[in-house]
Structure formats: structure tokens, C-alpha cells
Nucleic acid binder design. Structure first.
Lengths: 256, 256
DNA sequence: GGCCTTATTTGATCTAGGTCAAATAATTGG
DNA sequence: CCAATTATTTGACCTAGATCAAATAAGGCC
């Protein structure tokens, strides 16, 4: 498989996650015209509960976790939003306490649903962008269901790290460094593990020489292929991981 | 909350599941014009894998399970499709072995993606129908993530039965009968349990007097409110279950 | 730089749910 | 209606991951 095919496949499914929208903002650019910018700091929430106002949001920069609170103690992470993602009320489950939690400083574009729909009608580019976004999110949600329903804890963690590497990794030789915009608890709740268990799995991966920590929100992936071998190849997803070959074509090389 | 609101809320989120499309087929009617009808019997599969042809499907009658095979032994159910649902390749995760498995005799409408897109462009009704369908499915997927990530086995089963009651229940006095178009294994894999565990939970619910079997694919729900109390109220979803009041407004009464 | 706070890790223990094998029920096909 | 087949249930047992408590390690802030 050629590298260009790999890139194409990846672009098809992975919302760009490098922290800004420069690569794919054609759709967002038009949205920025009609939207209000909301700045969030880590820990801030946007309420998306059932009784929410009908607002549409688009992520301009930063990362959020869509979470539902089933009770005071039970918080479930549903999805991750990264730059370029669009959040529309109709696509959210009708749960009372639903919120998007900023895990890092974010810039969010906010607009009324009516205005957004009008924009979609006017601009074919926005309409297409938005339809694609919706489809991608749906595919991601379904992949996430597969992860939750079909993978063990260790496999989930491995798959998460491989995905992060491909979305946001930076290559230094054979090592991939990832600045992870999530706390361990964020990751744990996204993978439906508890933080203790995640930490244990993480330690195991470290002792196997697959990963290394470098500060709290940064990890070094020492053996991406080894990680990728830990979960079913069929879930290598968009990446088209050829497990016997260095699969780093997608990653920005430090030296570039 | 009034009954009419309840109905509205439900219609907003639940694809009609009664086994035919008479209630909401306005969108489907136009689709039938351009589509080929495919008849499936229980156990038949439609291949939706990554290398699939670019085809769009719409369910006219019957029920399917979208499933991914991670290996020969590991089959993961991702979503349920019921009459009215539309299946488009772009919304599916890029997994190699993905298929829609008929759990009951089905009529499926099949068409090329290009023809479908053209139809959407031409007909505002189809476009709207399809957009709504997509949004509903996305909401359902997210609800399912909450179920998988946040609920215990027993809670999942209770929530599934309540949902089936609301989607397809038939009321006889205070008892709700549901013809379930899925085998126990189907249900188990949809709830990410194994059949043994599901059976055990089911037996527990029977011994608590909440449900009763009446043949292999039919269950009687003796105490819908009791079932609904077994999982977090916030997940009562679309139903707007007022747990202290008979919530049967939505259900077709035998005597009608 | 050193204290304070908060996040992460680790150990010890427990349990929901998985696994495997065997026993029953339903269905199907004659 | 009965044998054969297949689906479900139940029992006995066992692990992955949860829970709780305590120890560390990172950051933050003066």
C-alpha cells in the first residue's frame, strides 16, 4: 500500500487533531463568520443536557470530552472532540446531564441551530463538510463501541495509544512522542476503566518497554508496532497499519 | 408531562420498530422508487466490510444487527437496525469484517451511493428524512456507549427490555408483551455480555417477578416500572419515564 | 527552592461476569 | 407426534478488573 493511500484513508476518518484547524478549516472558516467564539479553560464545561438551548458548537482548537453523568459518582465519557468536530443537539442522546468538558484550553465556535442550518443551506462547502463530519463521528462512535464491547483493558489502552500516535504523534527516529491533552482519569473514563486499572496497565506497558512517560501529559511510544500487535489487527482502523513495516508515514517528523 | 409530549419525544428518537414502515415511510417511499429489494432470511448477512462496494441500504422490514468480527471467536454487535433505518458506508467504521446480520426475515432496499446522493439532492423530503435518520442513529450509538461504559450487566438487560417494551411492546392491562426479534445470543452480544451471563440475569429478573418468558422469542414484562428503576433514571432516555406513574401511554393497547 | 495540593501509582482484597461442561428446553423435520 | 437438532439454562469454577487504602510523584505557588 502506498503512503498516499494511507494518508487518504486517514484523512477520511480522522478529524485533524494537531491543535489547530489550519489543515481542514475550509468548512470551519465559513462557520467562524456567523459564530461566537467561546474560550474555555481546562475543566470548563458546556452544558449539553436534554433541556439545553438549541445551539451548535464547533471546535476550533483544544480538546473536549463528551460526558454523561448517570449519578454524582458515575461519569461516562462518550466521545472525544478535537479541532474540526461539530456538535449538534440532534446527534446527542437525550440524557439529562450531558456536557462537553474541556480537557485543555479550547476555542469553541457557538451558533444558533437555525443560523447554522441556514448556513448549511447556503453553502455547499459547509453542507458537505458538516455531512462528512457527522459521518466521521458516527464511524468513530461505532469504533468506540467495538472497543468497549470487544476489547480487554490492555487492548483498549494499546489501541488508544496507537490512535493518539497517529493523530498527534511526533516522530523522533523510531520513537513517537505524543502530547496527550487528557489526564489519566480522562483516558480511563474514555476507555471505561478506572484510573487505578489504567495505571496498572500503563505500568505493564512500560515494563514491557513499549512506552515511557515523560511528564504527566506526555508519553513516548518506543514500539508502536509492538503496541499495535496487542489488539486485533482489524481494529487498526483507518491507519492501515502494516504491522511488519514501519507505519510512521503519517507522522510529522521532527526534522521536517 | 403530558402524554402528547411523551409521544413527540419518543418519535423524535426512536426509529419505528413495529415491523413495517407504514408510520414513517414518507422518506422511504421515494427511496423505494430507485432501490432494489433484497430479501433476507434469518441468519443471512450483508457484507459491509471495508472493501465493500459503495452501496446504501434502507431497512423496509425486519431487524438486523451490525456486527464486526475481530477474530473467528470474537463477534461484536455494534448497533441494531430496524425498519426505517438507513445504512451508509461513510458512517461505518473502517473495519474489515463488518456485516449486517438478519435476525429475522427482512426486506432491504439497496441502491448505489451515487444514486442515493442524487435522490437526496433532488428531494428535500428524502434529504431531511435521511439527515434525521443519521442524527438518530448517532444519538442511539452514543446512548449505547453510555450503556456499555456505564451500566452493569443487570442494568443493561433491564434497560434493553424497557427499550424493547417502548419500541415494540403491546399492552395487556399492566402487562407488556414483546415479540423480540433477536435470539438470546443476539441480545447478549448487543449488550456485551455472554449468553450464559445474560441467561443468569434473565433468570434473576424472572425470580424477582419482573418478567416472564412465553416461548423463546417472546417475553412478558410484568413490571415495567420495576425494570425501569433498575437502571439510572437519566437513561430512561426518550421515554421520559415518570417512574411513579404508569408509563404505558406510548404502547399500543391490544383492545384498540 | 521548598511546601502544598492534586494526580498517579501500587498493594491487598473482593466480585461481577467469563468459561467450560453438563443438563434441559424449544424447535424443526420427518 | 416423536426423534434430532439447536438454543437456553444452570452449576462449578476462575480471572480481569473494581475498590479501598496508602504511598509516591508531579506540578503550582509563594
Amino acid at each position: 500500500m502506498t503512503n498516499s493511500f494511507r494518508q487518504k484513508a486517514a484523512r477520511q476518518v480522522i478529524p485533524q487533531g494537531a491543535g489547530d484547524t489550519s489543515g481542514q478549516s475550509n468548512g470551519l472558516r465559513a462557520i467562524e463568520e456567523i459564530a461566537t467564539v467561546v474560550r474555555l479553560k481546562r475543566g470548563d464545561k458546556i452544558d449539553l443536557g436534554r433541556d439545553r438551548a438549541k445551539l451548535v458548537y464547533a471546535v476550533r482548537s483544544g480538546f473536549l470530552i463528551l460526558q454523561a453523568d448517570l449519578s454524582t459518582e458515575r461519569h461516562v465519557a462518550i466521545a472525544l472532540y478535537s479541532p474540526g468536530n461539530i456538535v449538534r443537539p440532534a446527534e446527542l442522546p437525550p440524557v439529562r446531564s450531558l456536557a462537553a468538558l474541556a480537557t485543555a484550553p479550547c476555542q469553541i465556535l457557538r451558533m444558533g441551530e437555525v443560523a447554522f442550518d441556514r448556513l448549511c443551506e447556503q453553502s455547499a462547502e459547509v453542507r458537505l463538510y458538516c455531512a462528512r463530519e457527522t459521518a466521521l463521528q458516527s464511524a468513530c462512535d461505532k469504533s468506540h463501541i467495538v472497543l468497549l464491547a470487544g476489547l480487554s483493558g490492555e487492548e483498549r489502552v494499546a489501541s488508544f495509544f496507537v490512535e493518539m500516535a497517529y493523530r498527534m504523534g511526533r516522530r523522533h527516529g523510531s520513537i513517537v512522542t505524543v502530547e496527550i491533552p487528557f489526564s489519566r482519569s480522562d483516558i480511563a473514563s474514555f476507555l471505561a476503566l478506572n484510573p487505578d486499572t489504567l495505571s496498572r496497565i500503563f505500568s505493564r506497558l512500560k515494563s514491557l518497554g513499549l512506552v515511557k512517560t515523560a511528564g504527566r501529559r506526555s508519553i513516548e511510544i518506543l514500539d508502536l508496532q509492538g503496541l499495535a500487535k496487542m489488539f486485533p489487527a482489524d481494529l487498526a482502523r483507518d491507519f492501515d497499519l502494516d504491522i511488519n513495516r514501519p507505519p510512521l508515514g503519517l507522522l510529522a517528523d521532527e526534522k521536517q
